[in-house]
Design a protein around this nucleic acid. Structure first.
Lengths: 206, 206
DNA sequence: TGTACATCAGTGAACGCGCGTTCACTGATGTAC
DNA sequence: TGTACATCAGTGAACGCGCGTTCACTGATGTAC
């Protein structure tokens, strides 16, 4: 770490990743160009290739970083609910990383570093879901629980980022997510998928 | 409708929209180029501008078509569950439309035709959710129910399309979606978000 | 039934632009002796 | 402490490519009379 301003940048790799995150938040991952990144980092247009080879190399690095940041964010949640909230919060605050991670066509999703990082973040989700007791009519077991939880937070986060949610949703994604995630564990539907009156709950005695 | 092969294409507008859907499924909406579409439709490269002006004009038309197709698909579901399954099925089968619809930065999302079409498809979802009785601990009322249902199907569909789901999920999106959506109405969580034993359900007598 | 004219759909040549990639280079840094 | 050399990071000119856009055009279709 030199911090020098001279011929050598000092930490160009990091600077390019940061610039990429900003650029992606502005115009999406597909519009990303290495020349633009070089401009943002104040470096010649051919410099990025030194560190990442090409665009997919850069996005691969960004995805790895993203999966690790996600795993760390999830670990801050002390319950399944709060872990879901943390997932949404991550998607909103690290929007660029989040977008790239779920676009495997944009990077080398089968690169070993990616596979390892993805596995680490999934393990965190899985371990939290494993504590959940089986629900009524729960076909699919713990895997089904994990899939449902993942789906609901991923969907909410995606819709939030797309600006697709109605105004009444408010402007605090964490709070809104909490309300939604609670729903995953509190209503009922019959075997045909039709709504039925709720069974009595410990908190709402008849 | 002439069907002629001569100077006039006959139904170029439709042909371009169809070509766009194919191109988007191959490489995503951002990579779309009007020249490529013209090539696919067997027409000169300047022809698309006649019908759509520019790329965002074309994507606007595609989004409108998408919202209408979605509303029609949802109407085939005769229960809230099956409506959710239809949502997922739509996302998988009309992948290009689905992707574009939720990228408002790519098209003119505030164009009146878009606003109207979006409103139509939302009304279908809303009306189905309105029948649902309030669940236990259900903060947010019917709007919360709608948001939770929308989130879980949207998330599942997005993860499916991204190829992010584990292999055990199988290869029938409708069946897998059904299992996940059932979860939204069948488990419980306490006020702190921690898992609690399920209350007795009408279908699983103690 | 025929003619004249307006309108519309699609053409093709031309332009300027930003991009990725290549390549010989130069400046800075670290290491061996 | 000094010198020589290898390695690495970043440069800048050059190239070819596909793109969007413009514009004068031409072929086909529909309508008025």
């Amino acid at each position: 770490m030199t911090g020098a301003r001279g011929y050598h940048h000092g930490d160009l790799r990091r600077a390019l990743l940061a610039a990429a995150a900003v650029a992606i938040e502005e115009s999406g991952p597909a519009a990303l160009s290495l020349r633009d990144l070089a401009r943002r980092a104040g470096v010649s247009h051919a410099a990025p290739a030194h560190h990442f080879g090409d665009k997919s190399g850069l996005l691969t690095a960004l995805a790895v970083e993203g999966f690790d940041l996600l795993a760390a964010a999830l670990r801050t949640g002390d319950s399944l609910l709060e872990m879901g909230v943390a997932y949404v919060d991550f998607a909103v605050r690290r929007r660029a990383h989040f977008e790239v991670m779920y676009r495997p066509d944009l990077y080398r999703a089968d690169a070993p570093e990616v596979v390892a990082a993805r596995k680490r973040s999934r393990a965190v989700l899985r371990s939290a879901v494993a504590d959940l007791p089986p629900g009524p009519g729960a076909v699919g077991g713990a895997a089904g629980d994990a899939l449902a939880a993942w789906s609901i937070v991923h969907g909410f986060a995606t819709l939030w980022n797309a600006g697709a949610l109605p105004d009444e949703t408010g402007d605090d994604p964490r709070e809104a997510a909490r309300v939604v995630i609670r729903r995953l564990f509190g209503a009922r539907v019959d075997a045909q998928g039709r709504a039925v009156p709720p069974a009595r709950s410990p908190r709402t005695p008849a």
